[in-house]
Amino acid sequence: MIIRRISHILCNYDNLTRLFAGACLLLFIAGILLLPLPYSEKQLYPKTFDRNSSLDPYDRGGPPFTQVTIVSQYPENSPTAGLVTSYLTPFSLFLSQVTLHLGTTIVSHPGGIIDEILYNTRGLDTVVEATILFIAFAIASYIYRKG
């Protein structure tokens, strides 16, 4: 019976990855068929690069930017969006105010690097991402130590 055959496949967890890959494949094919999706131009990265913009992802070096024009959803909530120090932890903020050598996001916590990638525009995301890394590291180290 077809139902029994399907449930035999479903109940074995060794088939799980294959099943999920199949489901993803179907969805992605459907996605490709639907492809010309409208694109909202009001995005962080414009489709044509303005090489003079401080947001140019291919820009290496040059003077660090202080204020950039980033399209944020709620500008009133994030007046410092785009600044390197816009989402520092209170302690890092204190360090950055005391000395020029400490307290930038890159050196202060692991999420800092991701901060840079996200151009410091989004607050809670950077914290969650750093937490994911931390959790994954904790699992790996526990398993490694316990053999």
């Binding site: 139902i3 029994r4 399907i6 449930s7 035999h8 479903l10 109940c11």
Partner: peptide
């Protein structure tokens, strides 16, 4: 039904 069959029917 058997457990997995019941799930399959619900999925269908």
């Amino acid at each position: 039904m058997s457990p997995f069959d019941s799930v399959t029917i619900q999925m269908l």
